[in-house]
Simulated assay, not measured.
Amino acid sequence: MGKILEVKGLHVSFTTFGGEVQAVRGVSFDLYKGETLAIVGESGCGKSVTAKSIMGLIPNPPGKITDGKILFKGSNLAALKDKDLRKIRGADISMIFQDPMTALNPTLTIGTQLVEGIIQHQKISRSEAQKKALEMMRLVGIPSTESRLKQYPHQFSGGMRQRIVIALALVCEPEVMIADEPTTALDVTIQAQILDLFRDIQKKTGVSIILITHDLGVVAQVADRIAVMYAGKVVETGTRRDIFYKPQHPYTKGLLNSVPRLDLENAELIPIAGSPPDLFAPPPGCPFVARCQYAMEVCDKVYPLKTKYGKEHHVNCWLQDERAKQMLASQR
């Protein structure tokens, strides 16, 4: 599989009355054709800001991409003007937002919103655009498409609204789709249906998906690779099997220990103690140092280098350094 999107050293900051919030600090990852990459981490770690940076949706002011590149089809999206980004946004790269009710315009019919998106990016007639809208509604599992096309968002259930938002994201046949917490507002049964829909659509269209979530249950079902974010940085990346069965970063292990286990008798949830660092003045070393039971003196002063743990498994943690391994071995 070839790379379709590359994010290199992305930095995003927000200017506030209290100072500069360094929301994303040197994030790098690749997305391959036809795969699902999940970006996971607790609230406030920079997942959604990273996604909106790719789409060019960071409001300036107060936000700004201060450094880094977002490479797509030979273009650096971080350096493009808004008029050039509009040609890509929705057509080549689309996004599913967290709340389907606020993502849809309550004053316009579903048909109008779907058709206008198609006409905006593709030079086809309104009747052809309407046919395409009906096809997309059928693809995402909306029944009685002709009558539904004339209805308003409030006439749909939560699950149906989410399907419409997915249809809006896919109607122009994008190569990359970003899904920001697409199942958060849905009950468990509807969540399962939406995840099945993602798998089915990806199989039919070959779209590459970036899934933004904090729900590791969702990640376990759909992700091919996982990037774990903490305090604006990617601290570990790997395949689904790497992250779930061979986690190396203490934060990744903490996330997994915080997930309820129904397969183990008398299993206890082990929360991660402490709070994330202040991103007005982030620590120079590992951002997890104040909450890590394995922290060493170097962790507080120098950010750890990336260590290759497997073919696609990388981790930024001083525990992976050979000197740390020797020290820990001598203490046993």
Score class of each variant (00 low, 15 high):
G56N: 01
E20T: 11
D263R: 10
Q331S: 15
K131G: 09
Q151K: 04
V24H: 00
K123I: 02
Q22H: 14
Q191L: 02
V12Y: 00
E6H: 03
A223C: 11
M160K: 13
L262Q: 13
L10I: 00
A103S: 11
I270R: 15
R25V: 02
L168H: 09
Q98L: 06
I212D: 00
A267G: 09
I272N: 04
L262F: 14
C317F: 03
R86V: 01
L255K: 09
A51W: 01
Q151M: 01
G90D: 01
T112V: 12
P100Q: 03
P59H: 01
L279C: 09
V302R: 10
E181C: 10
E135R: 15
E6R: 04
T184F: 12
F97V: 02
V315I: 10
L319P: 02
N60M: 09
V7Q: 01
K311W: 12
I210A: 06
D263Y: 10
G90F: 00
P277Y: 07
Q130G: 02
Y251F: 07
A78Q: 00
A192P: 13
I209P: 09
A227P: 01
M95S: 03
H214K: 02
G63Q: 07
K33M: 00
K131Q: 11
Y309R: 15
G111E: 04
R323C: 10
Q130H: 06
V235G: 06
N316C: 15
I166A: 06
P174N: 08
D200V: 05
T205S: 12
K123F: 02
E116L: 05
L255R: 04
D84E: 15
G141T: 12
E181N: 08
Q122S: 08
D187T: 03
Q221V: 00
S208A: 10
N105G: 09
H121W: 02
S330W: 04
L134R: 08
D321G: 03
K123N: 14
G232T: 01
P287E: 05
S275Y: 15
L10R: 00
N76F: 00
I39K: 01
F72Y: 15
G41D: 05
R291N: 14
T107R: 15
K325T: 06
K132G: 13
E135C: 09
H154W: 02
Y245S: 14
T15F: 09
R291A: 08
K132W: 05
D187K: 05
F97Q: 01
K233I: 05
P174F: 03
V12A: 03
E265W: 11
G90S: 03
I93N: 03
A179C: 15
I190T: 11
E265R: 12
I226R: 06
E6A: 04
V235P: 02
K301T: 14
G141K: 14
H314S: 12
